[in-house]
Amino acid sequence: MLIETLVEEAIKTVNKEQKIPELMHLNNSTPLFELLDSLGTLDLILELEDRLQSETNNYIAIADEFSMDSDKTPFKTLSSLKKFVQEKLDG
């Protein structure tokens, strides 16, 4: 599965509970970190880790010291998150 699709599907799953309107119509500038609360962000981290594990048969840790740092978080926008996940996958 393409990383773009994997990330978008993960966000859609997380948003089933949150029902945040902006997350129903994603674009690369969607401000994920601003829209999700801490549990929502953690939920997305876990969802991404689950999906990456299913795809690669490897556990790839998504959280790091910048995950919830408002300035440096890779969750800032959909575009930055896709880039971050791709980098994690590339090792």
């Binding site: 801490s38 959280a63 790091d64 010291e65 995950s67 919830m68 740092d69």
Partner: peptide, 22 residues
């Protein structure tokens, strides 16, 4: 989304998570 008094504990989950991991 929480219902609390000013005399209850408040936590900024993102900042605390970030602090712990950092």
């Amino acid at each position: 989304g929480g219902i609390r008094r000013d005399e209850d504990l408040f936590m900024n989950g993102k900042e605390v998570f970030n602090f712990a991991i950092k």
